[in-house]
Amino acid sequence: MSDQAYNFAYLDEQTKRMIRRAILKGVAVPGYQVPFASREMPMPYGWGTGGVQVTAACLTPDDTLKVIDQGADDTTNAVSIRKFFQRTAGVAVTEATADATLIQTRHRIPEAALTTGQILVYQVPIPEPLRFLEPRETETRKMHELEEYGLIHVKLYEDIARHGTIATSYAYPVKVEGRYVMDPSPIPKFDNPKLSNSPALQLFGAGREQRIYALPPFTHVVSLDFDDHPFEPSKAPHDCDLCGAGESYLDEVITDDQGGRMFVCSDTDFCRTRCEAGHLGALGVPVLKGGA
């Protein structure tokens, strides 16, 4: 039951209309950052206020919401945002990627393939891929206008000059439909290939920076690289220690002060599903169905 003291999904209707218009223009120009009048939300900047506003504008009472933070359904940020929408919108929630119609994510794309009709909402801290190279908004806006993206290639080149490879490992810049260079939010570059030609609609909300952008389904997204240094999605060279998955993105967990560590799937739903299906990693314990 939703909290009747609030309008459906917290925001007032005029605000939702404003956000909805921005989302539609973002969809019409994939990768372009549409300015919008971001509102103060009952959570601090950096907690996903942009994503929350986009989610609030898109939610219907029929939706099933999933919220993840670095792949996990059970961390503070994910739990608080999920509870926020349970309370203000009364929507159903789930941890299963396949059951969700709308997924709000902080810095990961779920391992399970997304499907047509699903919406993935990203929380974005700094939407401008050129911002750390050029601090002036007037200049970066001009660069997008003129398709002047030499600077970002210089940045990748400097990586190679300094480290021998492109060392950028997250928030790896992409080019959308051959036009706009876009920050995919700080997802690991392991996830970059999943941006392209996804059957799901991908929406990006940056609350503090007041920008919304979008990737419609089946949009062509290319990670920037060089002919002699092609883009390589990377992950820790291990299998998950809990479920044994070899193809998922891993978190490194320090287990003691003797150098002990383990690698586990960052996507908790993916890992749990595999454990319940009987897969077992090096440090895994067999799961009893229905019990923890």
Partner: peptide
């Protein structure tokens, strides 16, 4: 019921524009 009806309408509009 403006909040609920407009939410359904927007999702339909978003769907047709994005597909």
């Amino acid at each position: 019921d403006a909040a609920v009806q407009s939410s359904h309408a927007f999702r339909a509009a978003l769907t047709v524009l994005s597909q």
